[in-house]
Lab assay of single mutants.
Amino acid sequence: EDYYQILGVPRNASQKEIKKAYYQLAKKYHPDTNKDDPKAKEKFSQLAEAYEVLSDEVKRKQYDA
């Protein structure tokens, strides 16, 4: 799945936009606030993985290549 789609940001998003999108979605899908939703944990880990790659310039360049 596309990391940009997961975070809901365009491919040319700035680091600030990526961070903002991640924090909004992380708050929304955090397992502690969605105890009754088994998919929230999965969504949250996808968000974390996408953010880890896109927030790191080197990893992001490799991902975009």
Rank of each mutant, 00 (worst) to 15 (best):
K61P: 03
S14D: 09
S14R: 07
K27T: 14
R60A: 01
K20H: 15
Q46H: 09
Q5C: 13
I18L: 07
S55R: 08
Y3A: 03
K20V: 14
D36Y: 10
Y3N: 02
E42F: 15
F44C: 05
K27G: 09
E57Q: 06
A50P: 01
S45T: 09
Y3L: 10
S14Q: 06
K20I: 15
D37L: 05
Y51V: 03
P38N: 09
Q46P: 03
A13S: 07
A65I: 09
E57R: 06
E1A: 13
D64K: 01
H30F: 10
S55G: 15
H30M: 08
A65K: 12
V9T: 03
L25R: 07
D64G: 02
R11K: 12
K20E: 15
E1D: 11
I6E: 02
E42T: 11
A26L: 14
Y29T: 04
K39Q: 09
E49C: 08
Y23R: 12
S55Y: 06
K39L: 13
L7D: 00
P31A: 12
D2C: 08
S14Y: 04
E57F: 07
K16L: 15
A40M: 09
A21L: 03
V53S: 03
E57S: 08
A65G: 09
Q24K: 13
F44S: 05
P31W: 06
K19I: 14
I18T: 01
A48I: 13
K61N: 07
D64L: 02
I18M: 04
E17M: 13
P38Q: 09
Y63H: 03
Y23C: 07
K61T: 06
E49K: 14
Q5A: 12
V9N: 00
P10R: 11
K41A: 15
Y22H: 03
N34F: 08
V53W: 06
K41I: 13
P10I: 04
A65D: 15
N12F: 08
E52G: 12
Q46T: 10
A26E: 07
A26N: 06
R11I: 05
A50N: 00
K35E: 08
A26M: 13
Y4R: 01
Y3G: 01
Y22P: 00
D64C: 03
K19G: 08
D2R: 04
A50D: 00
D2S: 12
D36C: 08
Y3F: 11
A21P: 01
E17L: 09
D56A: 02
I6C: 06
Y3W: 06
F44R: 07
Y29Q: 05
Y51N: 02
V58R: 07
F44A: 07
Y63D: 02
K59F: 04
F44V: 05
I6K: 04
K39W: 14
F44G: 04
N34E: 07
K35C: 09
K35I: 10
R11V: 06
L54R: 00
A13N: 00
L54H: 00
Y29L: 12
A40I: 14
H30E: 08
N34R: 06
K27A: 15
E1W: 10
A21C: 05
Q15S: 11
D32W: 02
Y22E: 00
K20L: 15
L47D: 00
Y51I: 04
D36F: 11
A40Q: 07
A40H: 07
S14H: 07
L7K: 00
K16D: 15
S55W: 04
E52M: 12
Q5V: 10
D32H: 09
V58F: 13
L54A: 01
I18V: 05
A50C: 04
Y51A: 03
V9Y: 00
D32E: 12
K39S: 12
K19W: 14
K61W: 05
A50K: 01
K41Q: 14
G8F: 04
I18E: 00
L47I: 14
K19F: 15
G8H: 10
V53L: 04
Q24S: 12
Y63G: 02
P10Y: 07
F44K: 03
I18Q: 00
